[in-house]
């Protein structure tokens, strides 16, 4: 075989778009479904825009901050999470019920979906890659303390770890412990201490000192 030419027998002219196999398959499915009037292109664009840019863990952080600062709201959240979360306008499209799990000095809750990646989209957006990965899905149930340690969360031996497996109908949100020394913070400031991982249970709320590091005026 000659190495004199570098086109490897394939002519990369400017008129040759190469779409990946997956792109071709999605285009095929999408165009057929649009033709059959089962989906509308504008609606598809709206879904993507919403989940890419509008819904994210900040929704959940607002819910948690409210629960920390308003005992009546917290009571509603723990009794009927779907309704309490809907007070913010965050509602699921998939008809799932939300359950909020409260962490304490004695109990740490950890959320997983062992079969696929059921996740509370309305409050956390779409799941991170590791949540969708087999190692997390399997190990969170089998050895939760080891998984937590890898996320930097070390719990005392007297803390009970409870692992919750999400389903299509039931999604969980962890209510982390309110950080020490946060008594004087506003609800907005409290929200900044709530991370996505804290609401999955793979993290804790940030310490109050982390606020000053953000350089906010």
């Amino acid at each position: 075989m000659s190495h004199d030419n570098d086109d490897h027998g394939h002519d990369h002219r400017s008129s040759d778009n190469h779409w990946s196999e997956l792109t071709l398959r999605v285009k095929a499915l999408e165009s057929l479904l649009v033709e059959k009037k089962l989906v509308e292109p504008a609606a598809l664009d709206a879904f993507i825009d919403t989940y890419e840019t509008k819904i994210g863990p900040r929704n959940g952080a607002r819910v948690i901050a409210r629960a920390w600062s308003d005992p009546a709201y917290k009571a509603r959240l723990l009794t009927d999470a779907s309704a309490a979360i809907a007070e913010f306008g965050y509602t699921g499209r998939q008809g799932e019920d939300m359950v909020v799990l409260e962490n304490s000095a004695k109990v740490h809750n950890l959320v997983v979906c062992t079969l696929c990646s059921c996740y509370p989209w309305p409050v956390l957006g779409l799941p991170p890659v590791w949540y969708k990965a087999a190692p997390y899905r399997a190990r969170a149930v089998r050895e939760p303390r080891a998984v937590l340690a890898e996320f930097g969360v070390t719990l005392g031996g007297d803390v009970e770890v409870r692992v919750w497996d999400s389903t299509a109908e039931l999604r969980y949100l962890v209510l982390p412990e309110r950080p020490a020394g946060s008594e004087d913070l506003s609800e907005t400031e409290l929200g900044l201490l709530v991370t996505r991982d804290a609401m999955i249970g793979t993290g804790l709320a940030l310490p109050v000192a982390s606020l000053s590091k953000r350089g906010c005026p």
Binding site: T23, K27, E30, L44, F47, E52
Partner: peptide
């Protein structure tokens, strides 16, 4: 949190499932 979709086709496939469910 990083981008939720790595490539455009992922977002399109995601939206198709939501659309058909709706």
């Amino acid at each position: 949190d990083g981008p939720v979709f790595k490539e455009p086709w992922e977002a399109e496939a995601f939206a198709l499932a939501l659309g058909l469910h709706e």
